[in-house]
């Protein structure tokens, strides 16, 4: 795919052109009022991301919007098609998400592994164009390389923009990206493309942690002694799961109002006791340690065993926001120490 070069005014002009044709979302400041996508606001004027790690909220809100309507119908028996659930027309209009870090881009690719055959996820993927921004100065809580990612990684992104001194290299990575890029752009010099590729190769992390975890026995990891002390401080607040770009669990609820109903899905969290509660009152993961262990085992062992990579991109949001400082990097270390 093509690589273009912009100076700052040129990039601003290109973004302004985008703003005229398609809704563009960009990271909102902490506490800033947002619309349907918490943490992401409609871009009204050109804003380039600064340094540091990813935005406060992950891009999963664009792939699993809340609420997402699965089906609707009239609840009146005598209506035509009463009680006959039907799917709404798919949302098809394009949307651009601007300022996405490579970790978030990669999360979409990882979520695509289980969701490859899911209609709603694929529809959302088709309509969403991710414009990434390389992460030249990661935050102290960033660890994408330890999960196999790269601050210059392209996985899951449609366009990646990398700062180069005062200029920007714009890599068009997919057909979706090419459609947004338009025409008449200035190709980047070959030497600069080579330099960027070299930088990427040097910065790409390793899958060593993942491979070592896959080689360990599931039961031994499950029975490790550290889960108890680790989980003691957990409040089961669920913030880790809601912020995590690769936590994709959901709940389905029927919402009935004024003779109509809609079946919707929302994000759910395996940190909550209700998540597994049976109608009988029996709860297979009624204890906190079971829930904490389940989340980490899913991300670091069970998902890799089934799909290959870790279900973690090293964005560090859970590390930053956990009120009791549970740190997934330490959990990886603890798991790797299990014989």
């Amino acid at each position: 795919m093509n690589v273009y070069k912009f100076d700052e005014p040129g990039l601003a002009a290109w973004i302004n052109k985008l703003l005229e044709t398609v809704p563009v979302y960009c990271p909102a400041a902490k506490g800033e009022k947002c619309g349907t996508h918490p943490g992401w606001k409609k871009m009204t004027e050109v804003m380039l991301p600064g340094t540091g790690g990813p935005a406060g909220s992950s891009v999963k809100t664009f792939y699993f919007p809340q609420p997402e309507v699965l089906s609707t119908c009239s609840l009146k028996k005598n209506d035509d098609d009463g009680l006959l659930l039907k799917e709404p027309a798919p949302a098809a209009e394009k949307q651009v998400v601007f300022g996405v870090r490579p970790c978030d881009g990669r999360s979409v690719e990882l979520n695509n592994l289980p969701y490859a055959e899911e209609k709603l996820f694929q529809q959302n993927r088709e309509r969403t164009v991710l414009v990434g921004f390389s992460c030249s100065e990661p935050a102290s809580t960033c660890f994408c390389q330890a999960t196999g990612g790269s601050p210059y990684g392209t996985e899951g992104l449609d366009i990646l923009i990398s700062r180069q001194d005062d200029d920007f290299l714009v890599e068009i990575l997919t057909d979706r990206g090419a459609e947004m890029a338009g025409e008449g752009l200035t190709p980047a010099p070959a030497a600069e493309i080579t330099a960027l590729e070299k930088l990427r190769a040097e910065a790409t992390g390793s899958n060593e942690n993942c491979d070592r975890l896959k080689n360990k026995d599931m039961a031994a990891l499950y029975d490790a002694a550290f889960w108890n002390p680790l989980s003691e401080s957990c409040l089961n607040c669920g913030v880790c799961t809601f912020l995590c770009p690769t936590c994709y669990c959901f709940d389905i609820q029927d919402e009935a109002l004024h003779g109509k109903t809609r079946r919707i899905r929302y994000w759910d969290s395996c940190m909550f006791p209700l998540y597994t509660l049976h109608t009988t009152g029996h709860n297979p993961r009624g204890r906190k340690v079971q829930r904490v262990r389940n989340r980490f085992m899913h991300k670091l062992k069970n998902f890799p065993d089934r799909f290959g990579p870790l279900s973690c991109v090293g964005c560090g949001r859970c590390v930053v926001e956990c009120p009791v400082n549970i740190d997934i990097r330490e959990v990886v270390t603890d798991l790797l120490a299990v014989e």
Partner: peptide, 19 residues
């Protein structure tokens, strides 16, 4: 086996017993 479940197709997460 029986567990609480929502999607029925291995995506929503609720019914997992380990892997």
């Amino acid at each position: 086996l029986e567990n609480r479940m929502k999607c029925g197709v291995g995506l929503c997460g609720h019914c997992n017993v380990g892997p």
